[in-house]
């Protein structure tokens, strides 16, 4: 089975000598899998996501994503890798307020060298798919929370990444918008997208994920696919 993510004995400490905030943890995520990471605050969910995204480095162990071991790479290599293979959606959207919706979505595509027309076409396709086309020329500040999260997801998908990471994607949304995003993630997974979803919301995890892991104090307390956890 092809694994998009392979973590081997991964641990993360912020204070040398102190207890790890995460791990040691060994975990694999298969292609096409939708993994929900749940747990209380401070359990290491976001740390896990950051390690997988290459935004942070583990203190111990190895992180392999899309077949490449990334835990010792430099910033430049990580950035290049991230824009090609990983899409990220954040709780607070993290859109660039000074760019329009379409520019926000196109940005990662243009970074990889995609031509302007191709990037525009891909952005249009995603906006249509996510129902935000009418806001193409608007700035994010004018959109509702749900719409902003759709823009963030569209931006995350623009380069057709092998892996979509979503950190509390409904955390800042009202119930209706939260349902929209939940449906969106479900649809994406059905279309074959590999997803790692960090959430506090058991309903979201149940609706979108094919597998759930539960972290407590940085350690794996539950894995609904016991065969995958070691």
């Amino acid at each position: 089975m092809h694994h998009v993510i392979e973590l081997e004995g991964v641990a993360k400490r912020y204070d040398s000598g102190g207890a790890p905030v995460l791990g040691p943890l060994t975990l694999s995520v298969a292609k096409g899998e939708a993994l929900a990471v749940t747990g209380p605050s401070g359990s290491g969910k976001s740390t896990l996501l950051n390690l997988v995204a290459g935004l942070d480095r583990p203190t111990e162990g190895s992180v392999t994503v899309a077949g490449r071991r990334i835990d010792r790479w430099g910033e430049r290599a990580l950035a290049t890798f991230r824009r090609a293979h990983i899409g990220m959606a954040f709780q607070f959207f993290n859109l660039l307020d000074d760019l329009t919706v379409t520019d926000n979505i196109q940005l990662p595509a243009r970074l990889t060298g995609t031509g302007r027309r191709a990037a525009e076409a891909r952005a249009d396709e995603l906006m249509e798919m996510l129902g935000i086309q009418k806001h193409a020329r608007a700035h994010p500040g004018r959109l509702s929370g749900g719409e902003r999260q759709r823009v963030a997801v569209a931006r995350a998908l623009v380069n057709r990444p092998e892996l979509l990471l979503a950190d509390e994607p409904t955390g800042a949304l009202d119930t209706a918008s939260g349902h929209d995003v939940r449906d969106l993630l479900t649809d994406l997974h059905r279309a074959g997208q590999t997803i790692v979803l960090v959430t506090h919301d058991p309903a979201l995890a149940a609706a979108c994920a094919t597998r759930t892991i539960h972290l407590v104090d940085g350690r794996l307390a539950l894995d609904t696919c016991a065969g995958a956890a070691r």
Binding site: A53, E75, R82, N94
Partner: peptide
């Protein structure tokens, strides 16, 4: 700062 963080998260290199 926040803008820098976003740019890095979506794949901007330090040089960029």
């Amino acid at each position: 700062l926040r803008r820098i963080g976003i740019l890095k998260a979506i794949g901007f290199t330090p040089g960029e």
